[in-house]
Amino acid sequence: MPIDMELEAVLRPTQYPMPPYPPKTITLANGKVMVVRQAVREDVPAILKSVHPCLFIERDYYDIVSARLYGELLAWYRYRVKSEYCLMGQVDGYLVGIVNGRMENEKVGMSYHTLAIDRGLRIGSHLFAAKMEYHLEYLGQEEVLIVAESPIGFRRWMIEYPLEATKIPHELGGGDSYLLTREIYFKAKPRLVVGDRPVSQELMAEAEAEIKFADDDTIRERIAGLKGR
């Protein structure tokens, strides 16, 4: 599609400068090592291929979470948001989970979505924690606004941290936001935020070489199949 760059200059918001998220590795319950690293804008088309099959999975609200995530990532790719980031988890190069968020302003962050493509390994927990780590420790923010769309998300974030209820409205008209403050984060950190840094050159090279993704049927089976947990 030809792009009118003069118009784009009007439509594209100024991009917030955001310091990078330093990659880390996490050993999962099955012994596999997950590399958690920040995606770059050019990664978006590859990531969307893994999000696509999730759009049609009703179980555990994967449809709504992935539809919103799809839109958010696309908006980032097409320069329609000013401060979005995306972190991803890869095991043997395969994409197993995606989280994204943005800066509401310098002090306040907004958590967008958490999508675990492989299940039963607490990948969602690890990646959500990485996202909070990014906001508070690397973007240097004071607090993060969070809304859960699924009961699993509610249990993982609102109850496990536990987050503080607020009356701050959701930007798409959903339920009121919950809040992660620095105090809550640093109290929860020892039991929820893990990872080893730096990542070995070998693992990093494997992760960066190619974002591999399982085929649609495999993704659907993992999330919504009989053995989904």
């Binding site: 996490i26 050993t27 999962l28 099955n30 596999k32 607490r122 929820l192």
Partner: peptide, 23 residues
């Protein structure tokens, strides 16, 4: 079987990451 995932001793016990994997 419902669960067809072998566990790793490191992942659920030895590693410092086990605190999240196996709370």
């Amino acid at each position: 079987a419902h669960v067809e995932m072998a566990l790793d001793r490191g992942g659920i016990f030895d590693s410092p990451h086990a605190i999240v994997n196996n709370p």
